[in-house]
C-alpha cells in the first residue's frame, strides 16, 4: 500500500507534540523505516495521536494506529482517523461478546486478518494491547490480539513503548486537555518464540512494556 500523506498530518502531529510536550526516549532501538508493531500502554484518547506524532516524519508516513471503531467511526473523528492518521479501525470486544470458544476464535481471526492486511509488506502498526484505557497507575492485562498478530507475522519487530502522564493531560471522560509534559519511552524489540504459548508471551510482552516506566526518578 502506498503511503499518501495528508497535508494536515504534519500540522496535527506538531499540535499533538505541542499539547503533550512529549519528550521521546529511544531506549532500546532507533527509529527505523522497517516494519514494526509498536505496542503501548493506554490511558487517554490522545495516546495514539501522540505516539504517532512522536515518530520521525518518514517513519510516521508508514505507521498506522489501530483504533476502536465505535469511538472513531463518526463525523470529524472518522475523517481524521481514516484520512489523516490512516488508522485501522477495528471492532473491539468481539471475543468477549462471543457465545462460545469457536465464535471467539473466529472474531479474533477476523481482527487479526484485518490488521495483517493493513500492514501489507511495508506498513507498521501502533497497538494498545490492554484494549481499554486505564487510570495510569497500573497496566491492565493484555488481550490476545498481539499474540495472534505476532504468530501471523513472526519476523516483524514488536517494539514496546510506555507513555507517561497522558492520563493527566486528557483523562477518561474529559474533553479539554491540560497541556502538561509527557514522556514516551521506546524499548528493545521482542519477537515471539516458536514454541511460546499465549499466556507466556503476553506476560513477557507486558513485562517488557511495564519495565520502561520511569518510576519517579528523572
Amino acid at each position: 500500500m502506498s503511503a499518501v500523506i495528508h497535508p494536515l498530518a504534519s500540522v496535527l502531529a506538531a499540535v499533538a507534540r505541542g499539547i503533550s510536550g512529549v519528550q521521546v526516549r529511544w531506549a532500546g532501538c532507533r527509529p527505523e523505516e522497517k516494519q514494526r508493531i509498536y505496542f503501548a500502554n493506554h490511558t487517554s484518547h490522545l495516546d495514539f495521536v501522540v505516539l504517532w506524532a512522536a515518530l520521525p516524519g518518514e517513519v510516521r508516513a508508514r505507521t498506522r494506529p489501530v483504533a476502536a471503531k465505535d469511538y472513531w467511526e463518526k463525523g470529524l473523528k472518522a475523517y481524521l482517523a481514516q484520512r489523516v492518521f490512516r488508522a485501522v479501525l477495528v471492532h473491539r470486544g468481539g471475543t468477549a461478546q462471543a457465545g462460545n470458544r469457536e465464535e471467539a476464535r473466529a472474531a479474533a481471526r477476523t481482527v487479526v486478518d484485518r490488521l495483517a492486511e493493513a500492514m501489507g509488506e511495508t506498513d507498521s502498526l501502533i497497538l494498545f494491547p490492554e484494549g481499554k484505557r486505564g487510570t495510569g497507575e497500573t497496566v491492565g492485562p493484555f488481550r490476545s490480539g498481539l499474540y495472534y498478530l505476532a504468530k501471523r507475522r513472526p519476523e516483524v519487530e514488536l517494539v514496546p513503548a510506555y507513555l507517561e502522564n497522558m492520563n493527566r493531560i486528557l483523562p477518561k471522560g474529559e474533553v479539554l486537555p491540560v497541556p502538561l509534559l509527557s514522556l514516551l519511552t521506546f524499548g528493545a524489540p521482542i519477537h515471539i518464540g516458536e514454541t511460546e504459548d499465549k499466556r507466556g508471551f503476553l506476560e513477557r510482552a507486558c513485562a517488557a512494556m511495564s519495565a520502561l516506566r520511569r518510576k519517579g526518578e528523572s
Binding site: G21, P171, L181
Partner: peptide
C-alpha cells in the same frame, strides 16, 4: 506552569481546575 504542575502530584479531580 506546565513544568511545575507536571512535577507536583495532582489527582483526577483537579483536571477542571487545571483547565
Amino acid at each position: 506552569l506546565r513544568e511545575y504542575i507536571t512535577l507536583i502530584p495532582t489527582r483526577r479531580g483537579d483536571h477542571r481546575t487545571l483547565v
